[in-house]
C-alpha cells in the first residue's frame, strides 16, 4: 500500500509546503529569531565589540532609576496624548464636512491627502525652516509683519515638543481623513433617511447615528495613530540640533533614545532593554484601547 500514488490532498499539501518553505525560513530568520534576540540581549551588558556579559535584569533596574529615561518616557507619552486627540479631532471634522462638499471635492481631498505621501525627513526640514527666528523662518516673519511677539519654537524647552509634533500630525491627517470619509460613506443612507423622517436634527444624527456607526473606524485610527506617535523618530531626529532630541532632551522620544543608546554609545544590552520597554508599552496601550473601544 505504501506505493500507492499520492492523493489530491497530499499533492495539495505538498504544494502548500513548497510555497511556504522560503517564507517560513525568512520569517524565522528575520522576525522570530531577532525577536528572541532582542529579549536575550536585553539581559546582557555588551558594547558590540567585546564579549556579552549576562547581567539579568540589571538593565531594567538601571532604567528604572534613570531620570533621563523617565523624561524620555514622559516625552513619548506627551507625543501620544497630544497627537492622537488633536489629529483625530481635526481629521474627523474635516472628513465630516468634506464628505458633504461636491464642488471641488477631488481637489480639496488631494490637498489634504498629499502631505501623507511626503517623506517625513524632507518635511521635517521644511518645518524646521519655518520655525527659524526672524529673517529666516517664515512663521516668525509673518508674526513680525503682524507685529506679534516672536516665538522660540525649537529653541524653547516648552515649545519644541509641540513644534516637532506639528509636522507629524500634519502628515498623518490625510490618511485619517480618507479613512474617516470611507467610514462615513459606508453608513447606509437608509439610517439617515429614517432619522430624518423621525425628525432628528443634524447634531442628533451625528451623535446617535454617525458616531456609533463609525466606532470600528475610530478604533482602528486610534490604535494605528497611537502606535505611530509612540514610535515618533524621523521628525525629532531631523528637527533638533544634532538629532539629539533637545533642547535639554525636551523633545527626545523613546525610539530616538534607543537609537542613541545603541548606535552612539554602543550600549547594545541597554538599548535592547529599552526596546523591550517600547514593546511592552505598545502592547499595553493597544490592548487597553481595543478593550475600551471595542465594547
Amino acid at each position: 500500500m505504501n506505493k500507492s500514488p499520492r492523493t489530491i490532498k497530499q499533492k495539495r499539501a505538498l504544494w502548500a509546503w513548497l510555497f511556504l518553505t522560503i517564507p517560513l525560513i525568512y520569517f524565522i530568520a528575520v522576525r522570530f529569531y531577532p525577536t528572541v534576540g532582542a529579549f536575550s540581549i536585553s539581559l546582557t551588558q555588551w558594547n558590540i565589540v567585546g564579549d556579552k556579559t549576562y547581567i539579568g535584569f540589571d538593565n531594567f533596574i538601571a532604567l528604572y532609576h534613570d531620570p533621563v529615561f523617565w523624561g524620555v518616557l514622559s516625552n513619548t507619552f506627551e507625543y501620544l496624548l497630544l497627537g492622537v486627540p488633536i489629529s483625530l479631532l481635526l481629521s474627523f471634522i474635516i472628513a465630516y464636512y468634506l464628505d458633504q462638499v461636491r464642488f471641488g471635492h477631488g481637489f480639496l481631498r488631494a490637498c489634504y491627502f498629499i502631505p501623507f505621501l511626503t517623506t517625513a525627513v524632507a518635511m521635517a526640514w521644511v518645518w524646521r525652516w519655518f520655525y527659524q527666528p526672524v529673517s529666516i523662518g517664515i512663521i516668525n516673519l509673518a508674526l513680525g509683519e503682524m507685529g506679534i511677539l516672536q516665538l522660540d519654537f525649537l529653541r524653547s524647552t516648552t515649545q519644541a515638543l509641540p513644534a516637532v509634533l506639528a509636522p507629524a500630525i500634519w502628515a498623518g491627517l490625510g490618511f485619517q481623513i480618507i479613512i474617516f470619509m470611507a467610514g462615513i460613506r459606508a453608513i447606509p443612507m437608509t439610517y439617515y433617511e429614517a432619522a430624518k423622517i423621525d425628525g432628528a436634527g443634524s447634531w442628533q444624527i451625528l451623535k446617535e447615528i454617525t458616531m456609533p456607526q463609525l466606532r470600528p473606524t475610530i478604533t482602528f485610527l486610534v490604535v494605528i495613530s497611537s502606535i505611530g506617535f509612540l514610535r515618533i523618530f524621523d521628525q525629532v531626529y531631523n528637527m533638533t540640533q544634532e538629532g539629539e532630541g533637545g533642547p535639554l532632551n525636551a523633545t527626545r522620544p523613546l525610539v530616538l533614545h534607543i537609537y542613541k543608546t545603541a548606535f552612539d554609545n554602543f550600549e547594545m544590552g541597554m538599548a535592547a532593554a529599552q526596546t523591550v520597554v517600547l514593546f511592552v508599552i505598545l502592547m499595553i496601550i493597544t490592548a487597553l484601547q481595543l478593550r475600551i473601544l471595542q465594547k
Binding site: P34, T35, G37, A38, I48, M268, A271, A272, F279, L282
Partner: peptide, 18 residues
Amino acid sequence: TLMIPTEMLVIPWYIVAK
C-alpha cells in the same frame, strides 16, 4: 509578527548584518 515593533528588531538585525 505585526505586534513586534521594527525598533525592537533593528538591534539584532544590525548585529546579524555586521
